[in-house]
């Protein structure tokens, strides 16, 4: 896997910055009331930065990504990508969803070349690029398989190739490895890092796994329980290239950072849990 990665067909690009300024997002609940999912979120991600976002379930992490990707609009505040206010889907954005968004009726190759095809590349060229990218993620032999014939890890790699083939300057990932088993997740994390280090898009990586966040990111953002807002930002000064995520987590600095961030995160997790479980007093103590 790691060897194949060295031949990535990626060329140079101008990376994009991401800015959220005073962003608030409200939803209408089915009963007609207004529910605030995000409140006054300020977040700035420099070009080429790998930013992980952690926070309790329902705190608005996915919502943040839909706002940056232009799939939805903020109720208040500004979202800027590459310096431009977001209107519609900004250029150069890639998205890897939690549940892989592969078209089940298309083959693996058909799924990977969707991006170039949608952008009007001739079929032949799109196919050639698709095959290159399948090579990069080590799935060249599975080009004509259908998604349901692959394992979860392989499907994730297809999703990754499908997102990266458009050479995004901004990569949004919503708990991309959340559904994978621990070993596959570790392998995928390493592959993601290798790909990222080659092409250096700006990344917002949403996860509920703090170790994963620290292992991958330059910066970890902790969000409060809903309505979500930025609680704290931690710069991760572990050297790059990081190497294997599963080894780095025993290093002294890693443990220190983990300790620090977990302190901040756990009270939010406790609050979110108390809200959903509605057992007053049952949480907070050892959460």
């Amino acid at each position: 896997m790691g060897v194949a990665l060295a031949v990535g067909p990626v060329t140079g690009r101008t990376p994009g910055s991401i800015e959220l300024l005073g962003v608030t997002k409200r939803f209408l609940t089915p009963s007609g009331a207004s529910m605030t999912a995000l409140r006054d979120v300020d977040m700035v991600i420099a070009p080429g930065q790998f930013c992980a976002v952690v926070g309790p379930t329902g705190c608005g992490k996915s919502t943040t990504l839909t706002l940056v990707s232009g799939l939805d609009r903020p109720s208040a505040g500004t979202v800027r990508v590459g310096g431009q206010p977001v209107e519609g889907i900004p250029k150069g954005v890639g998205f890897v969803f939690q549940n892989d968004a592969l078209l089940p009726w298309k083959t693996v190759l058909g799924n990977v070349l969707l991006g170039p095809m949608f952008r009007g590349l001739p079929r032949k060229e799109a196919e050639a690029r698709g095959r290159e990218w399948l090579q990069v993620v080590g799935l060249a032999d599975f080009a004509s398989h259908h998604p349901h014939q692959l394992s979860g890890g392989m499907r994730k790699r297809v999703s990754l190739a499908a997102a990266l083939i458009n050479e995004p300057s901004i990569l949004l990932m919503d708990e991309p490895f959340g559904a994978l088993d621990v070993q596959t997740k570790a392998i995928m994390s390493n592959e993601l890092l290798a790909l990222w280090e080659q092409t250096r898009p700006s990344v917002i990586f949403v996860t509920h796994d703090l170790e994963e966040a620290i292992g991958l990111a330059d910066r970890v953002v902790v969000m409060t329980a809903g309505p979500g807002t930025v609680k704290a930002v931690y710069d991760i000064d572990l050297p790059r290239p990081r190497g294997a995520v599963q080894e780095i987590r025993f290093e002294h600095r890693f443990l220190e950072l983990h300790q620090q961030i977990w302190e901040s995160l756990r009270s939010e997790v406790g609050r979110a849990y108390a809200r959903t479980a509605a057992i007053p007093g049952a949480v907070g103590g050892q959460a």
């Binding site: 839909t66 990707s69 998205f95 969803f97 968004a101 991006g115 949608f118």
Partner: peptide
């Protein structure tokens, strides 16, 4: 989800 993904990939 599939529609959102296609939109991001640049589909009209």
């Amino acid at each position: 989800n599939l529609v959102a993904n296609a939109r991001i990939l640049g589909a009209s």
